[in-house]
Design a protein around this nucleic acid. Structure first.
Lengths: 189, 189
DNA sequence: CCATGATGAGACATTCCTGTCTCACATGGG
DNA sequence: CCCATGTGAGACAGGAATGTCTCATCATGG
């Protein structure tokens, strides 16, 4: 059977390479994706039927990584503020992939879209709602918008990191502190 | 000379139509752009040599609109906080176009990019810096990141508005208040 | 040693978009 | 009235990416 027992690993490796490449160049060719993974275009097509299938697989990977990050962040524990900080920290490794998917409008205009996004939105929205009900978060910004802002700031910081405008080690602080506290100084520490 | 004296108006109309369409569907064909503007593809090519020229023209329009918004917002007057609120309010009409350009990576990977972005970055960055020096804004978030976050939140809210997740009339509040104050409640009103 | 199966290289047709062209038509000015 | 100019429709070739195919190679397992 040759390498067949490693195909799952190969597939994952290809997926990660594609994510890394498409994060930087979202219009990359199937040939470029194959080159980046160190395989031929034929083999790439054996793993993923076409470009659409590849993007869908990346979408599934992104959703899975976000859900894993959400699990690790334990959004139900402790203060909502700290939970958001944990979430941003845990989501950083997936930020690049998330930024790519966020800009891939192809995923949203389709008639049916992956349920995973709705699950994620619900869980993250619930975290913000918990913070509002507990009096930690202001109530004039809707949980839906706060969730959207979390995605947007994550993607923005991922791009800014790729361009070198923000240091990667500052990612958690920049995203979480802006999302939580905004630009204004606090009167009381 | 027929309609030649109105060509400038035609061109502007085409540009606005293209912006509105490409904001929703960034991969729209030249034919779709022409259809959306109510002209034929031949006439579209008479106004813009090719797709690249069209995108560049949209970039120039976006920059011009942002600079105009910045002028109207009078970023040097009054408190930096109010200046940011004015800027967000004035930038809303250009938010859709800005969101399209923000996701058009083609503009950034080219060897030379429009100087306008740097001018805008400088002016907006200066506003945040003024707020920091005046003690209004916190100093642990860099002006570069705050500028990036302004773009990112603007684009996010523009998309959320298109999808109906955020009401258009709430745009200024959602963007400005999150950027300024974050999600946390203030102890003191 | 041989058979199996995965791989890489490349050819190939197809499809889609683009850019350019021609031509007929309409409108407006001289 | 006649000409000039802008326009729409369509044809056309070219390029690029895709998806499918074949074939030679090579490693593994029996």
């Amino acid at each position: 059977m040759g390498y067949s027992c490693f195909m799952a690993l190969d597939r994952d490796h290809v997926l990660r390479s594609a994510a890394a490449l498409l994060t930087r160049k979202s219009t990359a060719t199937m040939d470029e994706v194959a080159k980046a993974a160190g395989i031929s275009r034929a083999t790439l097509h054996r793993h993923f039927a076409g470009r659409d299938a590849l993007v869908r697989a990346l979408e599934a990977l992104g959703i899975a990584e976000c859900e894993a990050a959400l699990d690790r962040a334990r959004p139900e524990e402790g203060s909502a503020t700290d939970a958001v900080r944990r979430l941003v920290r845990e989501i950083q490794p997936a930020a690049g992939l998330l930024a790519f998917l966020y800009g891939e409008s192809q995923l949203w205009e389709g008639d049916r879209q992956n349920d995973g996004w709705q699950r994620l939105d619900s869980r993250i929205g619930a975290l913000f709602q918990r913070g509002q009900r507990g009096g930690e978060f202001r109530i004039d910004l809707t949980p839906v918008w706060l969730t959207e802002a979390l995605y947007g700031l994550t993607a923005s910081c991922a791009w800014a990191t790729l361009d070198g405008r923000v240091a990667a080690r500052d990612f958690p602080t920049m995203v979480a502190e802006l999302l939580l506290g905004g630009a204004l100084r606090r009167e009381e520490p």
